[in-house]
Deep mutational scan, measured.
Amino acid sequence: NQASVVANQLIPIQTALTLVMMRSEVVTPVGIPAEDIPRLVSMQVNRAVPLGTTLMPDMVKGYA
């Protein structure tokens, strides 16, 4: 099973992502693949992302 990127904390809207905000976890449905974590650093979320939420491509500006 492929690991996805999951929020390690509440990430407020417009926040630039850092490594400490994300973790990898095998979840359903599958979100952004964990191997993309380095690419996500400094990208902004376009909505508030609660703790434990799987990051989906449409939540990160410039990802999809």
Rank of each mutant, 00 (worst) to 15 (best):
D58R: 08
M43V: 04
E35N: 13
P50M: 14
A7Y: 02
V6C: 04
V41M: 06
M59N: 06
G52M: 04
N46V: 11
I32F: 01
S4L: 01
T15D: 03
A16V: 11
R47C: 07
V49M: 04
I11L: 07
L10P: 11
G52C: 04
I37N: 00
M59H: 08
A34V: 08
R23T: 08
Q44K: 13
G62Q: 08
I11H: 01
M22L: 12
R23K: 10
T54K: 03
T28K: 12
L10F: 15
E25M: 11
A16D: 09
I13Q: 15
E25T: 07
S42G: 15
G62W: 08
M56K: 08
P38A: 10
Q14A: 15
R23G: 08
Q2M: 11
V26A: 09
E25V: 10
L10H: 15
L19P: 09
P29T: 05
A7M: 04
L55W: 02
R23Y: 06
S42D: 14
V6Q: 03
A3L: 13
V45T: 12
L55K: 01
D58T: 09
L40Q: 00
L51N: 14
T53H: 09
V60C: 03
Q14P: 02
S42A: 11
T54Q: 02
I37M: 13
S24T: 10
V60Y: 00
S4H: 01
P57A: 10
G52D: 07
P33M: 08
L17Q: 00
G62R: 06
A64V: 15
K61Q: 13
V60M: 05
R47H: 10
M43G: 03
P29A: 04
L51D: 15
G52L: 04
T18S: 09
P33G: 05
L55T: 00
P50F: 08
I37F: 03
E25A: 15
T53P: 00
A3N: 07
L17S: 00
N8C: 07
M59G: 03
Q2I: 10
V45E: 01
I11Y: 02
G52Q: 02
L51E: 13
Q44N: 10
Q2V: 13
N8K: 10
V49T: 05
D58W: 14
R23P: 02
Q2C: 06
A64M: 15
N46I: 14
Q9A: 09
I32V: 08
A48T: 14
D58M: 09
S42T: 15
P29F: 04
I11N: 01
P38I: 10
T53I: 07
R39E: 08
V26M: 13
M59Y: 11
Y63F: 11
A64T: 15
L17H: 01
Q9E: 14
G52E: 03
A64P: 10
I32T: 02
T18H: 05
P29L: 05
L19R: 11
P29S: 04
D58K: 09
A64W: 09
V5L: 02
T53S: 10
A48H: 13
R47V: 15
M43T: 04
R39V: 11
P33H: 08
D36K: 11
K61S: 13
D36E: 13
A64G: 12
A64K: 05
T18I: 06
V20Y: 12
A16K: 12
M21S: 04
G31A: 03
N1D: 12
I11M: 03
Q44D: 04
R23M: 06
L19D: 07
N1Y: 14
A3C: 08
P50N: 10
P12M: 07
S4Y: 03
V49N: 03
V5C: 06
G52F: 04
L55F: 08
A48N: 15
M43Y: 10
P57H: 07
P50H: 10
V27A: 06
Q9W: 07
S24G: 12
V5G: 01
V6Y: 02
N46L: 13
Y63G: 03
G31N: 03
M21W: 03
Y63S: 04
G62N: 10
D36H: 13
E35C: 06
L19I: 12
P57C: 06
P50E: 12
N1H: 15
L10V: 10
V27Q: 03
V20A: 14
N46M: 12
V45G: 01
V6D: 01
A64H: 11
G31R: 00
I11W: 02
D36N: 11
I13S: 13
I11E: 00
D36V: 09
V41I: 14
V60T: 02
V41G: 01
T28M: 13
I32L: 04
